[in-house]
Design a protein around this nucleic acid. Structure first.
Length: 210
DNA sequence: ACATTAAGTGATT
DNA sequence: AATCACTTAATGT
């Protein structure tokens, strides 16, 4: 855990802060597909991701879901940040996209470190900024890009966070993530296959060239 | 062999 | 781009 912390955050934080993280943080390992945060949950600790990726999604009252973005090692969850400060409920759901290793930091420490460590303050501010950018990007994607472009982006993101060009996912799951119908996904994937960009198989697909 | 689930397709709006 | 209705193919029991 120490090596992983250093590897992902060592260049960001000063040694004293790393020591504190080590002593106060709780190491957790979460398997793929397990929800980390549900909508409506109160958040009492913030995650620092060491390994793997987490999928952040939004959901409406009918239970329809939609992908917002993925977070990876070196990232933290901006929702956590705003929730912790305002003591409000989570408005998003976080699901482990892959097997994930992370360190949970109690919220009280966040405040403390904000004034104590310049590097922490920078990290939080930068995280906020990064998430905000990603959110805007997500909005652009949803509002302005056509479905075929959205699927391309989805596949690229997915390949990136998994570090694998074989993506194990069904058309139905893609449809749910992008909030569209399975038939549409099947058709668009078929087009991509004909263009030689991907290979289709049952329960998984392979990226050739995006 | 049969049931279940994933994926492909034409037609319609 | 969504929905329906139907087919085909893969997989589990």
């Amino acid at each position: 855990m120490i090596e992983q912390l250093n590897q992902n955050y060592g260049y960001l934080f000063e040694d004293k802060l790393l020591d504190e993280i080590m002593s106060v943080g709780v190491y957790k390992k979460v398997s793929e597909g397990i929800p980390l945060i549900e909508i409506g949950d109160y958040i009492n600790s913030m995650p620092l991701i060491l390994k793997g990726a987490i999928k952040i999604q939004r959901e409406d009252k009918e239970g329809e879901e939609l992908i917002l973005y993925f977070i990876e090692p070196g990232d933290t969850c901006a929702m956590t940040l705003s929730c912790c400060m305002g003591q409000s409920k989570s408005e998003i759901r976080a699901i482990a996209e892959t097997d994930v290793e992370l360190i949970m930091i109690p919220v009280q420490k966040m405040d403390e470190w904000m004034s104590k460590y310049k590097s922490w303050q920078n990290f939080i501010l930068k995280s906020y900024h990064d998430r905000m950018s990603e959110l805007l990007e997500a909005i652009d994607t949803i509002a302005f890009l056509k479905m075929d472009m959205r699927i391309l982006k989805y596949l690229r993101d997915k390949a990136m966070v998994n570090h694998d060009d074989i993506i194990k996912v069904t058309h139905k799951e893609i449809a749910q993530d992008l909030h569209t119908s399975r038939v549409v996904v099947s058709r668009l994937l078929k087009v991509l296959e004909n263009d030689g960009k991907i290979e289709l198989h049952r329960n998984h697909l392979k990226i050739i060239d995006l």
